[in-house]
Design a binder for these strands. Sequence first.
DNA 1: ACATTTCTGATTTACGTACCTCAAGAATTA
DNA 2: TAATTCTTGAGGTACGTAAATCAGAAATGT
Lengths: 341, 341
Amino acid sequence: MKPTVHDIARIAGVSLATVDRVLNGRPGVRGVTREKVEKAIASLGYVRDLAAANLAKGRTYRFTFILPSNDNSFMIGLGREVEAAMQRSPVERTRIDIVRVPAFDAPALVAALEAVGSAPPDGVALVAIDEPGVRAAVEKLAEAGIAVVTVVSDLSGSARHHYAGIDNIAAGRTAANLMGRFLSKVDGHVGVLAGSMMVRDHRERLEGFLSVLSEDFPQVAILPVMEARDDAAAAEALVRGALRRHVGLNGIYSLGAGNRGLIRALREVAPEKRPAVIAHELTHSTREALLDGTIDAVLNQDAGHEVRSAIRVLKAKADGLPVLAAQERIRIDIFLKDNLP
Amino acid sequence: MKPTVHDIARIAGVSLATVDRVLNGRPGVRGVTREKVEKAIASLGYVRDLAAANLAKGRTYRFTFILPSNDNSFMIGLGREVEAAMQRSPVERTRIDIVRVPAFDAPALVAALEAVGSAPPDGVALVAIDEPGVRAAVEKLAEAGIAVVTVVSDLSGSARHHYAGIDNIAAGRTAANLMGRFLSKVDGHVGVLAGSMMVRDHRERLEGFLSVLSEDFPQVAILPVMEARDDAAAAEALVRGALRRHVGLNGIYSLGAGNRGLIRALREVAPEKRPAVIAHELTHSTREALLDGTIDAVLNQDAGHEVRSAIRVLKAKADGLPVLAAQERIRIDIFLKDNLP
DNA sequence: ACATTTCTGATTTACGTACCTCAAGAATTA
DNA sequence: TAATTCTTGAGGTACGTAAATCAGAAATGT
C-alpha cells in the first residue's frame, strides 16, 4: 500500500495538521518537529498523490501561450496544436489562453509578456525572439514564480526553465551532412535560402550547415545566402535567378519557410537537371515535393510534440516536479519520401 | 465550471444514484429514465473526472510486459525502460509486472500469454512473434477484455489493440533511399546483413530495402543476404568474407542486431575504401562508429518512447478512451553523426 | 510568575466520483 | 387484489489531500 499523510502522522507522532503544514510549507512548525516529519516522509518513501491533491485544491493549471500571428504553414500548424490542447483542457485540468503578437516584433512580445504578469497564470510558453528586452521580461516572470518555456525558438542565457524545440545548429549540420553525401563525388555549388538572418534559429541552422560543409566537404562551393524573408514570391524569384546564373548549382538548402516559392522555381527545371534540395518543415507543399522528387529531404520539428511537451513541462514545473529529459527532447525528424507519416 | 454528476442529476431531474447507475452501466434503470440522463450528459458535455474516479475506486492499473530474455543491446535497453516505468509506478497509479520468455520461442510466448490469463491484469504488452498460436492467445486475452499492445514487433491481422513500434517496411525503404544516394553515381554492389529471415521485422526491412533499391536505383547490384542470427562473431566473419570477395562492395545495410561484429570487420578496411554503411538501433557501439565514420547512418526506434507509448495506450484502452494517434506514432529516427542526441 | 507569542493537535469540510444500503413507489405478475 | 419484482430516491461512506478553525500546550519575554 502506498503511504498516505495519515501514515506520516502516525510514524512521526504528530497530528495530520502538522504534516500538512510541513508538506505545504505553511508556517507554524518548530524546526525539531519539522525534521521529525521529514524523516518520517523519507523513511516511508511518501509521494504526494497529485490526483487527490489537485482534486482537493480544485486546481486547474492556467497556462498562456504567446504565439506570433504568422501566416506560414508551420506557425498555423503550431497554433492548431495549441487549440487541440485547449480542446483537451477540461480532461487535463488545464486552462490555456492564447495571445497573438505580430511576428518578429520584440516590443510587442515584451508587452505581451508584461501583460501576462497582471493576471499571472501558472506558466507561460512563448516563441522567443532573442533580444535583451524579451530576456528581461522573461526573467521578471520567472522571478514571480511563473514557469516559462520557450517553444520553437529559444532565448539563450535567459531564465526560461525549458526549451521545447530542436537544436538548430545540429539541424544545420545534419542538412550539410546529407547534402554533402547527396552531391557525392560531384563538386559543385550549393545555395542557401533563408528567411532572415535576424532570427536566431535561421542563423544557427546556417552556422551548423556552413561549418560541416567546410569541414567535411571542402570541395563544395557555397553561394551567398539568399534572404527571402520567409516569403514564397521572393523565394521563387531568388531561386529562379540563382538557377539561371549558376549552371553548376547542384544543391539548395532551404532553412526557412516560404518553400512554396522554392518548389515552383524548381519545377521549371527538367527533373534530371534539378539540384539536390533539402528543406525544413513538413507541410502540404513540401510533402508533395518530396513525393514527386522535387525535394530530396525535409528536416522537421513536430509542432504537436513541441506543444504537448511544453504543456507537460509547464505542469511539472508548476508542481515542482522533475521533467523526464529523454521524453521531452524534441527530435529533428528527417523525412525522405519513404518514411513520410 | 466543469459539469459534475450533481449537475446531471439536477438537469435530468433524477437522483444522484440513478445518474451513477447510468454512468457505470449498472442495472435498475428504465429505458426512459436512462435516456433522460444520457440527454443531460450530452447537453452538459459532461466528462467523467478520471482522477476523482480513480481515487474513489482506489484503482491501480495492472499491466504485464512480456519481454524476450535477449541479450542484445536493444532488448536490454527496452527492459531498462520498462523498469524505469516501474519506478514511476506509484505516481502513475500503475503496477507493472515483467515476464521474461526465451527469445524467438513461440510456444514459450504462448504459455506466458496463457499464464497471464489466470490473474488477469488490465493490459498486456508483448514483443510479438508472428505465429498462429500467438495470434490465438492474443485473441483470447482481447476477448477477456484485456487490452493488448504489441511492442517493437507486430502481430499482423490479430486482435491486438495497438502496435507501439516502427513501420519496418518504411524503415527498409528509407535505408534504401539513403543508400542509393550515398552511393550516388557509383554503381556497385550492396550487401545486406540480417539477423534471421524468420523474424517479421527483419523480413519487412529487407522487403522495403529491396523494393526501393530495385525501383529507384536499378544500377545497384545486391549480394545474397547474409544471415548472422544477430550474433556479433558471425556477423564479423560474414562481413570480412564479403569485403574480401567483392572489391566493388560499396554499401552494406545491417538490418538486425550484432553490429559490434560488423564494426570490427569494417575497421580493418582503410577509411577511404570503406563502403557506405547503414545500420539499425543506436547503441554504444553504433554511436561510436557513427562518430568515427565507420557507419554513415543509423536508423533507430526509441525504446523509451515505445514503452511510454505502450503504457499510455494500455491506460487509455483500460479506460475506454481514444488514443491520440499522432502522439503515439513511433517514428523512424535517422541519426547521422551530426544529430546524435 | 505573568502575559504574550509561537507551536501543535483535534476536528471538520470539501473536491468529484464510486459504491453501498435502505426504503418507498411503480409496474408487473399471479 | 395481493404478492412480487423492478425502479428510483435519499443518504451515507470512502478515496487522499487541502485548508480552515479553535483550543490547548509550549516556549518566550518581561
